[in-house]
């Protein structure tokens, strides 16, 4: 290449006839890998309620509570998506592997209360 002004003009002109690189969000979506760390999913069947996830969560976003009786336990996961930083440390920490992440990233809500989900 020789020195001179306007060197990018040819390169830019080529692209006028190419498809734009933009993905226009609501109409087209970026393909996300299955391994993308989105919203946490919870499987209440295998959970033993050890709350290690809550202990390791850096943001204090997750909590597992027993909604059943002392004998017949049934667990519920309370997740504050507004506080969650999507690090997925809870998934790594869970001894029973009852937490896993999903590539769901469309979590916006109109109210803060809607971000608090019970699973």
């Amino acid at each position: 290449m020789k020195k001179g002004p306007g060197k990018i003009a040819g390169f830019a002109l080529e692209h006028v006839f190419k498809k734009p690189a933009t993905i226009q969000y609501p109409f087209g979506k970026l393909k996300l890998e299955e391994s993308y760390r989105g919203k946490i999913e919870y499987d209440a069947e295998t959970c033993i309620g050890c709350n290690i996830c809550a202990r390791d969560c850096p943001a204090g976003a997750i909590k597992v509570v027993n909604v059943g009786t002392k004998e017949e336990k049934s667990f519920q996961c309370r997740l504050d998506v507004g506080h969650c930083i999507f690090c997925a440390q809870c998934v790594d920490s869970c001894p029973k592997k009852c937490l896993h992440f999903s590539p769901n990233i469309e979590l916006a809500a109109f109210s803060r209360d809607n971000l608090k989900v019970t699973m």
Binding site: S35, I85, D92
Partner: peptide, 21 residues
């Protein structure tokens, strides 16, 4: 990076004692 780590910015691939993925 998103494919390797699971996120576009905070890859979270490091953990104490190694890597996660």
């Amino acid at each position: 990076l998103a494919m390797l780590g699971g996120n576009r910015v905070n890859y979270g691939i490091n953990t104490l004692g190694g890597v996660r993925r």
